[in-house]
């Protein structure tokens, strides 16, 4: 079994917080409303994750608190605005901002999405879907190559939550991601909630979907809550809201993923209707308990 360590550049390793990989423990998204609570209590957590764009400001409280929290915890930087799937080229100015942030905070992990969010100079603030065919494969790989070259480190690519598919796709999503990982050497951020959401939305089997992903490249797992809607046929349509606790179906799928993967750094994501810190900590503890089961059992053969 290959672990995330495989994707480190040569000479990088060791324990957090310094450099190296995220520990195979649970972590939480860092929210400004929790800065004080975290620094006062220093909870036992594997890592924190930030959205890169929120910290692309010059100074003030965000950097003040992140600097302090970073001195106590490993960090994952998760981009939401690089628009790797964009038809236009990558935004080099944004890539420069990202490089500066990564240099400043030396995160153990950097990840982004298989999606696009900018077009024609406009930022649309959502993770928008791509058709999967030779042209988009070539483009996504070229963009990831450029990101990894500019940042001088490998990135993790997150599987998306989507609501529509494209008539001209010639790859399934898992095959497309496998090919991107094979060609670019990037890692996989396995968003188990996105797997559940997309598989319900597109009538797929989530376990089979996970099994078809390039699991050996998995560097991190994300778990989040979703909202329930219905489509025009009255079938369930799940919406990746990050505004609710992790659902039971997703916890079951997570267990199934851990059976295939062994313990992997796992983030509880919550970006909307953010509850008090102890509520999120309890979810992180639940993930940690499942992770420890698999750690004791050892890695799967």
């Amino acid at each position: 079994m290959t672990t995330a360590r495989h994707f480190l550049p040569p000479g990088v390793g060791g324990s957090a917080p310094g450099a190296g990989t995220l520990p195979a423990r649970s972590g939480l998204g860092l929210k400004p409303e929790h800065f004080h609570s975290i620094l006062e209590t220093l909870p036992d957590l594997g890592f924190f994750e930030i959205h890169a764009e929120n910290y692309m400001v010059e100074g003030g409280p965000y950097h003040h608190y992140l600097t302090r929290i970073r001195s106590h915890y490993p960090l994952s930087i998760h981009g939401v605005g690089l628009s790797i799937g964009a038809e236009a080229g990558l935004d080099e100015t944004h890539l420069d901002r990202l490089a500066a942030l990564i240099k400043r905070y030396a995160p153990q992990s950097f990840s982004e999405h298989l999606a696009w969010s900018s077009h024609g100079g406009v930022f649309l603030n959502d993770l928008l879907p791509l058709p999967y065919h030779a042209e988009t494969l070539h483009r996504v790989c070229a963009h990831i190559d450029r990101v990894q070259e500019r940042l001088q480190r490998p990135m993790l690519l997150e599987n998306p939550a989507t609501y529509v598919e494209f008539a001209d796709s010639t790859f399934g999503e898992a095959d497309f991601i496998s090919e991107v990982v094979r060609r670019t050497g990037c890692g996989l951020l396995l968003d188990v909630s996105n797997v559940h959401v997309s598989c319900v939305n597109h009538g797929r089997d989530p376990r089979a979907f996970i099994a078809a992903l390039p699991l050996a490249a998995t560097g991190q797992i994300h778990l989040a809550g979703f909202a329930r809607d219905v489509d025009a046929a009255g079938d369930p349509l799940l919406i990746d809201s990050h505004g609710a606790p992790v659902a039971d179906e997703v916890w079951r799928l997570y267990r199934c993923a851990l059976e295939m993967l062994g313990p992997v750094p796992t983030l509880i994501e919550r970006d909307n209707d953010v509850p008090a810190f102890p509520v999120l900590l309890a979810e992180a503890r639940k993930a940690e308990a499942m992770l420890s089961t698999f750690a004791e059992a050892g890695e799967p053969a």
């Binding site: 959502d126 058709p131 609501y163 529509v164 598919e165 494209f166 939305n201 009538g203 489509d231 919406i239």
Partner: peptide, 18 residues
């Protein structure tokens, strides 16, 4: 144009989510 759904439902309803 060019959007499809697994169950043949109108993609416009799903596009509305975006």
């Amino acid at each position: 144009d060019g959007l499809v759904t697994w169950n043949g439902s109108d993609p416009a309803r799903r596009f509305q989510v975006y």
